[in-house]
Design a protein around this nucleic acid. Structure first.
Length: 215
DNA sequence: CTCCCGATAT
DNA sequence: ATATCAGGAG
């Protein structure tokens, strides 16, 4: 298992490799970010941006998503995958936003998870990126990188990974670290064929050393 | 744990 | 052909 001082070194390396890591889901306001993040489940952000480019022209407010039929909304997001669940959730979410929240998104993580289709990860993305509240959302990249490095256990669930990351990372660095770990996982420590030979963290990486031995 | 699901990379 | 992609609900 990784030591805390080794993790602090990882944080430094993440910053050096991806100093300008940021949210790559294109959005103009908190509501658009929520929709984009909900759509991003099991889809690449490039693909999400391709879909939202047109979607956000047609749908600007929660009311706009309610006006059309469920079938029409499904068609507008079909190419993204998991489109039936996502369309149903977006609709229910918008109705709830209008009737219970006066159309205004709450700036609270636990309040956001009450919306259909919004789990802990999505809520963390919204509060950190849209409202400036420190959060460390654990997505597929953050989880994979954490487990490969050995900063948590393989069997830990995403909540346990998040707790460990928050405990070992200064609060003011949570949001930055989240973005840097995504970039690190997406462009360097990739799911298929990670670039271990050129990795500055190879010396302390459990999975990396194992992979190098196997070759 | 399974299901939802199309697009893309390997 | 198969794995993976900014997950969440039942």
């Amino acid at each position: 298992m990784l030591r805390k001082t080794e993790w602090q070194h990882c944080l430094q390396v993440f910053e050096e490799m991806f100093p300008d890591a940021h949210c790559e889901l294109v959005h103009q306001n908190p509501f658009e970010l929520l929709i984009a993040t909900l759509l991003s489940a099991q889809a690449t952000d490039v693909h999400v941006n391709k879909v939202t480019a047109e979607l956000f022209q047609k749908y600007r407010t929660p009311e706009d998503y309610i006006r059309v039929s469920l079938e029409e909304l499904e068609n507008d997001i079909r190419s993204i995958g998991l489109y039936r669940n996502k369309a149903k959730n977006i609709r229910a979410l918008c109705e709830m936003l209008i009737t219970e929240y006066n159309g205004i998104l709450p700036e609270d993580r636990d309040e956001l998870t009450k919306f259909p289709g919004v789990g802990r990860k999505t809520a963390n993305v919204v509060v950190s990126n849209a409202f400036g509240i420190p959060a460390l959302a654990v997505d597929t990249h953050v989880e994979r990188v954490s487990k490969r490095l050995g900063m948590c256990r393989w069997k830990d669930n995403v909540t346990q990974v998040e707790e460990k990351l928050m405990r070992w990372t200064p609060r003011e660095e949570w949001t930055n670290t989240h973005h840097r770990m995504i970039f690190f996982g997406r462009y360097h420590c990739k799911a298929q064929n990670p670039n271990c030979p050129e990795c500055p963290l190879l010396d302390l990486c459990r999975e990396g050393k194992k992979r190098m031995r196997a070759k």
